Amino acid sequence: MRIMTWNVWWRFGGAWREREDGIVATLLAVQPDVVGLCETWAGDGTTQPRLLAERLGGFDATFAPTSIPPVPHPPEEPSQAGVQMGVGLVSRWPITGRTVHELPHPQRTGPPPTAISAILDRPGAPFRVIVTCLEWETWFAQDQLAQARAVAELAAASDLPAVVLGDLNASVDQPEMAPLLAVLADAWPAGGGDPAAVTLSSAVPQAPLKAVKQIDRRIDHVLAHGGGLTVERAFLAGDQPIDGLHPSDHFAVVADLDWDRKP
Protein backbone atom coordinates (compact mmCIF):
# COMPACT_ATOMS: atom_id res chain seq x y z
CA MET A 1 0.00 0.00 0.00
CA ARG A 2 1.10 3.56 -0.69
CA ILE A 3 1.17 5.91 2.31
CA MET A 4 1.65 9.68 1.93
CA THR A 5 2.03 12.60 4.33
CA TRP A 6 1.83 16.24 3.27
CA ASN A 7 1.69 19.63 4.92
CA VAL A 8 -0.52 21.48 2.42
CA TRP A 9 -0.04 25.02 3.85
CA TRP A 10 -3.66 25.83 4.78
CA ARG A 11 -4.95 28.96 3.03
CA PHE A 12 -1.66 30.77 3.41
CA GLY A 13 0.19 32.60 0.67
CA GLY A 14 -2.70 34.24 -1.15
CA ALA A 15 -2.83 31.74 -4.05
CA TRP A 16 -4.35 28.82 -2.15
CA ARG A 17 -7.05 28.19 -4.78
CA GLU A 18 -4.44 27.91 -7.52
CA ARG A 19 -2.29 25.70 -5.29
CA GLU A 20 -5.28 23.43 -4.74
CA ASP A 21 -5.09 22.42 -8.41
CA GLY A 22 -1.46 21.39 -7.90
CA ILE A 23 -2.32 19.42 -4.77
CA VAL A 24 -5.02 17.50 -6.65
CA ALA A 25 -2.73 16.92 -9.64
CA THR A 26 -0.01 15.56 -7.36
CA LEU A 27 -2.38 13.19 -5.58
CA LEU A 28 -3.78 11.91 -8.87
CA ALA A 29 -0.25 11.28 -10.14
CA VAL A 30 0.96 9.53 -6.97
CA GLN A 31 -2.25 7.52 -6.39
CA PRO A 32 -1.80 7.00 -2.64
CA ASP A 33 -3.98 4.64 -0.63
CA VAL A 34 -3.68 6.78 2.51
CA VAL A 35 -2.87 10.48 2.94
CA GLY A 36 -2.14 12.27 6.20
CA LEU A 37 -2.64 16.02 5.89
CA CYS A 38 -1.25 18.82 8.04
CA GLU A 39 -2.17 22.50 7.84
CA THR A 40 -5.39 21.47 6.13
CA TRP A 41 -8.59 23.48 6.39
CA ALA A 42 -12.30 23.30 7.18
CA GLY A 43 -14.67 26.03 6.07
CA ASP A 44 -17.40 27.02 3.63
CA GLY A 45 -19.42 24.00 4.72
CA THR A 46 -16.77 21.40 3.84
CA THR A 47 -13.21 20.30 4.53
CA GLN A 48 -10.17 20.05 2.33
CA PRO A 49 -9.71 16.32 3.17
CA ARG A 50 -13.29 15.66 2.06
CA LEU A 51 -12.79 17.51 -1.23
CA LEU A 52 -9.53 15.67 -1.92
CA ALA A 53 -11.15 12.33 -1.07
CA GLU A 54 -13.83 13.03 -3.67
CA ARG A 55 -11.21 13.85 -6.29
CA LEU A 56 -9.42 10.57 -5.56
CA GLY A 57 -12.59 8.68 -6.36
CA GLY A 58 -14.80 8.08 -3.34
CA PHE A 59 -12.16 7.80 -0.62
CA ASP A 60 -13.12 8.24 3.03
CA ALA A 61 -11.92 11.33 4.94
CA THR A 62 -11.87 12.93 8.36
CA PHE A 63 -10.71 16.25 9.83
CA ALA A 64 -9.86 17.52 13.32
CA PRO A 65 -9.11 21.10 14.37
CA THR A 66 -5.69 21.81 15.82
CA SER A 67 -3.87 24.83 17.19
CA ILE A 68 -0.57 24.25 15.39
CA PRO A 69 0.01 26.48 13.60
CA PRO A 70 -2.48 29.12 14.76
CA VAL A 71 -4.71 30.75 12.18
CA PRO A 72 -3.88 34.40 11.51
CA HIS A 73 -5.71 36.99 13.62
CA PRO A 74 -6.83 39.14 11.97
CA PRO A 75 -7.17 37.18 8.69
CA GLU A 76 -4.58 38.02 6.05
CA GLU A 77 -7.30 38.05 3.40
CA PRO A 78 -11.10 37.49 3.36
CA SER A 79 -11.11 33.79 2.39
CA GLN A 80 -9.32 32.92 5.65
CA ALA A 81 -12.06 34.35 7.87
CA GLY A 82 -13.83 31.67 9.93
CA VAL A 83 -11.71 28.86 8.45
CA GLN A 84 -10.27 26.25 10.82
CA MET A 85 -6.73 24.91 10.91
CA GLY A 86 -6.54 21.15 11.19
CA VAL A 87 -5.07 17.75 10.55
CA GLY A 88 -6.79 15.33 8.21
CA LEU A 89 -6.83 11.77 6.95
CA VAL A 90 -7.88 10.51 3.52
CA SER A 91 -8.15 6.75 2.95
CA ARG A 92 -9.05 4.27 0.26
CA TRP A 93 -10.46 2.08 3.05
CA PRO A 94 -13.19 3.00 5.56
CA ILE A 95 -12.04 5.07 8.53
CA THR A 96 -13.33 3.58 11.79
CA GLY A 97 -12.63 3.98 15.50
CA ARG A 98 -11.64 7.63 15.08
CA THR A 99 -10.43 9.46 18.16
CA VAL A 100 -9.03 12.98 18.45
CA HIS A 101 -6.34 13.23 21.12
CA GLU A 102 -5.31 16.50 22.72
CA LEU A 103 -1.52 16.75 22.95
CA PRO A 104 0.35 18.28 25.88
CA HIS A 105 1.31 21.96 25.62
CA PRO A 106 2.33 23.18 29.09
CA GLN A 107 4.43 26.02 27.67
CA ARG A 108 1.81 27.40 25.29
CA THR A 109 -1.54 28.77 26.41
CA GLY A 110 -4.76 28.44 24.44
CA PRO A 111 -6.36 25.56 22.51
CA PRO A 112 -4.41 22.29 22.33
CA PRO A 113 -2.62 20.72 19.39
CA THR A 114 -4.25 17.44 18.40
CA ALA A 115 -3.66 14.08 16.77
CA ILE A 116 -6.18 11.96 14.87
CA SER A 117 -5.96 8.26 15.66
CA ALA A 118 -8.09 5.98 13.49
CA ILE A 119 -8.34 2.42 12.28
CA LEU A 120 -8.36 1.89 8.53
CA ASP A 121 -10.49 -1.12 7.67
CA ARG A 122 -8.20 -2.64 5.07
CA PRO A 123 -9.77 -6.03 4.19
CA GLY A 124 -8.04 -8.76 6.14
CA ALA A 125 -5.36 -6.43 7.46
CA PRO A 126 -6.66 -3.38 9.36
CA PHE A 127 -4.12 -0.95 10.76
CA ARG A 128 -4.00 2.25 12.79
CA VAL A 129 -3.01 5.66 11.45
CA ILE A 130 -2.07 8.63 13.63
CA VAL A 131 -1.86 12.04 11.97
CA THR A 132 -0.44 15.07 13.74
CA CYS A 133 1.57 18.27 13.54
CA LEU A 134 3.92 19.01 16.43
CA GLU A 135 5.15 22.28 17.92
CA TRP A 136 7.71 24.11 15.80
CA GLU A 137 8.87 27.20 17.67
CA THR A 138 12.29 26.75 19.23
CA TRP A 139 11.30 28.29 22.57
CA PHE A 140 8.57 25.65 22.92
CA ALA A 141 10.95 22.70 22.46
CA GLN A 142 9.78 21.07 25.70
CA ASP A 143 6.21 21.10 24.41
CA GLN A 144 7.37 19.47 21.18
CA LEU A 145 9.20 16.76 23.10
CA ALA A 146 6.16 16.09 25.30
CA GLN A 147 3.95 15.86 22.21
CA ALA A 148 6.35 13.42 20.55
CA ARG A 149 6.24 11.23 23.66
CA ALA A 150 2.44 11.29 23.67
CA VAL A 151 2.23 10.28 20.00
CA ALA A 152 4.80 7.52 20.53
CA GLU A 153 2.71 6.16 23.40
CA LEU A 154 -0.39 6.14 21.20
CA ALA A 155 1.42 4.15 18.52
CA ALA A 156 3.04 1.71 20.91
CA ALA A 157 -0.27 1.03 22.67
CA SER A 158 -2.00 -0.03 19.45
CA ASP A 159 -2.90 -3.69 19.15
CA LEU A 160 -2.66 -3.25 15.37
CA PRO A 161 0.24 -2.20 13.17
CA ALA A 162 0.44 1.58 13.33
CA VAL A 163 1.65 4.41 11.12
CA VAL A 164 2.41 7.93 12.32
CA LEU A 165 2.10 10.57 9.61
CA GLY A 166 2.77 14.25 9.87
CA ASP A 167 4.84 17.37 9.98
CA LEU A 168 6.78 16.62 13.14
CA ASN A 169 8.90 19.76 12.82
CA ALA A 170 12.14 17.93 13.52
CA SER A 171 14.61 15.85 11.56
CA VAL A 172 15.68 12.42 12.75
CA ASP A 173 18.93 13.78 14.21
CA GLN A 174 17.14 16.25 16.49
CA PRO A 175 16.28 15.25 20.08
CA GLU A 176 12.54 15.86 19.71
CA MET A 177 12.31 12.82 17.41
CA ALA A 178 13.95 10.42 19.87
CA PRO A 179 10.75 9.22 21.61
CA LEU A 180 9.13 8.41 18.29
CA LEU A 181 12.16 6.65 16.82
CA ALA A 182 12.43 4.54 19.97
CA VAL A 183 9.19 2.72 19.07
CA LEU A 184 8.65 3.39 15.34
CA ALA A 185 10.73 2.76 12.22
CA ASP A 186 11.52 5.60 9.83
CA ALA A 187 10.20 4.48 6.44
CA TRP A 188 12.51 6.86 4.57
CA PRO A 189 15.86 5.05 4.87
CA ALA A 190 14.11 1.67 4.92
CA GLY A 191 12.65 2.49 1.50
CA GLY A 192 15.89 3.77 0.01
CA GLY A 193 15.02 7.46 0.29
CA ASP A 194 17.75 9.95 -0.55
CA PRO A 195 19.69 10.66 2.68
CA ALA A 196 20.09 14.30 1.60
CA ALA A 197 16.37 14.86 0.95
CA VAL A 198 14.58 17.75 2.63
CA THR A 199 10.86 18.45 2.91
CA LEU A 200 11.08 22.14 3.82
CA SER A 201 13.42 23.62 1.25
CA SER A 202 14.80 27.14 1.09
CA ALA A 203 14.68 26.79 -2.70
CA VAL A 204 10.87 27.12 -2.59
CA PRO A 205 9.96 30.82 -2.92
CA GLN A 206 7.36 30.71 -0.12
CA ALA A 207 9.58 28.76 2.30
CA PRO A 208 9.58 30.06 5.90
CA LEU A 209 13.26 30.98 6.12
CA LYS A 210 12.85 32.10 9.74
CA ALA A 211 12.14 28.49 10.75
CA VAL A 212 15.83 27.92 11.38
CA LYS A 213 15.28 24.64 13.19
CA GLN A 214 13.35 23.13 10.28
CA ILE A 215 14.49 24.74 7.03
CA ASP A 216 16.44 22.50 4.64
CA ARG A 217 15.69 19.41 6.73
CA ARG A 218 13.44 16.36 6.36
CA ILE A 219 10.81 17.21 8.97
CA ASP A 220 7.77 15.40 7.48
CA HIS A 221 7.68 11.70 8.26
CA VAL A 222 6.13 8.31 7.68
CA LEU A 223 6.90 6.21 10.76
CA ALA A 224 5.67 2.65 11.26
CA HIS A 225 5.25 0.28 14.20
CA GLY A 226 4.53 -3.44 14.00
CA GLY A 227 6.21 -6.74 13.25
CA GLY A 228 7.06 -7.90 9.74
CA LEU A 229 7.30 -4.38 8.30
CA THR A 230 8.67 -4.06 4.80
CA VAL A 231 9.22 -0.79 2.92
CA GLU A 232 9.65 -1.20 -0.81
CA ARG A 233 10.23 2.45 -1.75
CA ALA A 234 10.25 5.96 -0.29
CA PHE A 235 10.25 9.16 -2.33
CA LEU A 236 9.21 12.81 -2.41
CA ALA A 237 6.21 14.22 -4.25
CA GLY A 238 4.94 17.75 -4.78
CA ASP A 239 8.55 18.94 -4.95
CA GLN A 240 8.27 20.62 -8.35
CA PRO A 241 6.20 23.63 -9.45
CA ILE A 242 2.98 22.94 -11.33
CA ASP A 243 2.01 25.70 -13.75
CA GLY A 244 4.72 27.81 -12.17
CA LEU A 245 3.50 27.40 -8.58
CA HIS A 246 4.61 25.03 -5.83
CA PRO A 247 1.53 23.25 -4.40
CA SER A 248 2.79 23.85 -0.84
CA ASP A 249 5.78 25.19 1.04
CA HIS A 250 6.44 21.56 2.09
CA PHE A 251 7.18 18.52 -0.05
CA ALA A 252 5.21 15.33 0.51
CA VAL A 253 6.73 12.06 1.69
CA VAL A 254 5.49 8.84 0.09
CA ALA A 255 6.27 5.27 1.19
CA ASP A 256 5.19 1.93 -0.23
CA LEU A 257 4.97 -0.42 2.74
CA ASP A 258 3.31 -3.50 4.20
CA TRP A 259 3.45 -5.71 7.26
CA ASP A 260 3.58 -8.95 5.25
CA ARG A 261 -0.21 -9.19 5.65
CA LYS A 262 -2.06 -9.20 2.37
CA PRO A 263 -5.76 -8.34 1.94
Results as ranks from 00 to 15, higher is better:
196 A>S: 15
225 H>M: 12
202 S>C: 09
245 L>T: 07
234 A>Q: 08
217 R>M: 10
204 V>F: 07
198 V>H: 10
218 R>F: 06
198 V>Y: 07
215 I>R: 06
206 Q>I: 09
241 P>T: 02
193 G>E: 01
215 I>N: 02
199 T>Y: 02
204 V>M: 09
203 A>Q: 15
244 G>R: 01
227 G>A: 12
225 H>G: 11
227 G>H: 08
199 T>L: 05
192 G>N: 09
192 G>Q: 10
202 S>Y: 13
232 E>P: 07
212 V>N: 13
192 G>Y: 00
219 I>T: 11
203 A>R: 13
220 D>W: 01
229 L>E: 02
197 A>N: 00
211 A>G: 13
220 D>N: 12
204 V>L: 03
224 A>L: 09
240 Q>H: 11
204 V>H: 06
191 G>T: 03
241 P>I: 00
229 L>P: 06
211 A>M: 14
223 L>V: 06
243 D>F: 03
233 R>A: 15
245 L>R: 07
218 R>L: 14
200 L>N: 11
197 A>G: 03
215 I>Y: 02
215 I>G: 04
225 H>Q: 09
240 Q>N: 02
222 V>C: 13
222 V>Y: 07
216 D>Q: 06
224 A>W: 09
221 H>F: 10
233 R>V: 06
198 V>A: 00
206 Q>S: 14
198 V>R: 00
206 Q>D: 15
209 L>C: 12
239 D>M: 04
205 P>S: 12
214 Q>I: 05
218 R>P: 11
230 T>A: 12
217 R>I: 04
243 D>I: 09
221 H>C: 09
219 I>M: 01
203 A>P: 09
222 V>L: 12
191 G>C: 03
213 K>Q: 11
233 R>M: 12
239 D>Q: 09
245 L>Q: 05
226 G>L: 05
196 A>D: 15
209 L>S: 14
207 A>P: 08
193 G>I: 00
223 L>P: 11
210 K>W: 14
219 I>E: 03
235 F>A: 15
199 T>F: 10
213 K>C: 06
226 G>D: 06
214 Q>D: 08
236 L>H: 13
235 F>T: 15
237 A>G: 02
235 F>M: 14
203 A>G: 13
224 A>I: 06
217 R>F: 01
233 R>S: 12
229 L>I: 12
200 L>Q: 04
193 G>F: 04
197 A>V: 04
196 A>T: 13
228 G>F: 00
199 T>C: 10
209 L>A: 14
245 L>A: 01
215 I>L: 01
216 D>W: 04
219 I>H: 10
219 I>V: 03
191 G>M: 04
216 D>K: 06
204 V>W: 08
241 P>R: 07
224 A>D: 00
217 R>Y: 04
234 A>I: 01
220 D>F: 01
215 I>W: 00
240 Q>V: 13
210 K>F: 14
239 D>E: 08
203 A>L: 15
194 D>P: 13
242 I>M: 11
202 S>D: 10
219 I>W: 10
239 D>A: 12
220 D>E: 05
230 T>E: 13
226 G>M: 06
213 K>V: 08
205 P>T: 11
202 S>V: 10
218 R>C: 08
228 G>A: 00
234 A>R: 00
218 R>Q: 14
234 A>G: 08
205 P>W: 11
207 A>K: 05
198 V>F: 01
194 D>M: 11
